[in-house]
């Protein structure tokens, strides 16, 4: 097909989908995560001792949304070969070599990988799957990850989400999309006392204020990203 664009980063793939490396080649261009303005570095320096809650933004990871059918072997095996992980089933997640894949919906998964690696991963996935029906969308600029850890993490998160996060109901690795205050988050249990939230960029300030407020009575500290 005719290539009307001149930019080499924007690639027409065999699926007739435009893929684009969205990370500047010039590393000196300043990137601002959704919580950049909160100046978490300074907050981290002022942290409480013996905090019941430890918060950390995992800023500037690359986020890819994967869409496809589990009944489509080209899709499932393609994902498996590119990621080295089997697609997790309902409400499950998997981790491999720094990449995390989370079930979002029967035909949707969220993959996070190190910042800057998303373009390459998307290429690998597209190559592995060929011309079958699927979609991959880069949403790295649209969301961020916050980890919530500590002895009081679970108690604090009960103020944030109506989902039953008790370990008997939400063991390590389980992932759900639910409400977070009046916003929403993808919530994953990463350990007995550890959780991870994926939140949308435009709601990040609200979610962060909420976390600080809800953590107040336990004492909290912030780890630098």
């Amino acid at each position: 097909m005719s290539n009307t664009t001149t930019q080499t980063d924007a690639t027409d793939t065999s699926q007739n989908i435009v893929q684009m490396n969205q990370i500047p080649a010039d590393a000196s261009v300043r990137a601002e995560s959704p919580l950049y303005h909160a100046d978490l570095k300074t907050v981290a320096e002022q942290g409480t001792q013996d905090a019941g809650i430890v918060l950390q933004e995992l800023a500037l990871l690359d986020h890819l949304v994967l869409r496809g059918s589990v009944d489509n072997a080209a899709f499932t095996t393609g994902v498996e070969s590119a990621l080295g992980m089997v697609l997790p089933a309902n409400l499950q997640s998997a981790e491999h070599e720094g990449r995390v894949i989370r079930w979002i919906s029967p035909d949707e998964w969220l993959v996070t990988t190190a910042g800057g690696m998303g373009f390459e991963l998307e290429q690998q996935l597209r190559e592995a799957m060929g011309e079958t029906h699927f979609a991959i969308v880069n949403v790295s600029g649209g969301q961020t990850v916050i980890t919530v850890e500590g002895a009081d993490a679970e108690e604090m998160l009960k103020k944030c989400t109506p989902y039953d996060i008790h370990i008997s109901h939400m063991p390590v690795g389980k992932v759900v999309t639910s409400l977070f205050g009046k916003s929403q988050a993808v919530i994953r249990r990463t350990g007995e006392q550890g959780f991870e939230l994926v939140i949308r960029r435009s709601f990040a300030d609200y979610c962060w204020l909420w976390l600080q407020d809800a953590s107040g009575e336990f004492g909290f500290s912030v780890k630098e990203s």
Partner: peptide, 27 residues
């Protein structure tokens, strides 16, 4: 210096370029 998609669409009636970049580089 940032990869962008630029749309020549206009809601003002003037010559316009809508510059879209990954939001971490928006600022």
């Amino acid at each position: 210096g940032v990869p962008a998609r630029v749309f020549r669409i206009s809601f003002t009636g003037e010559l316009s370029y809508e510059v879209n970049v990954q939001a971490n580089y928006g600022m």
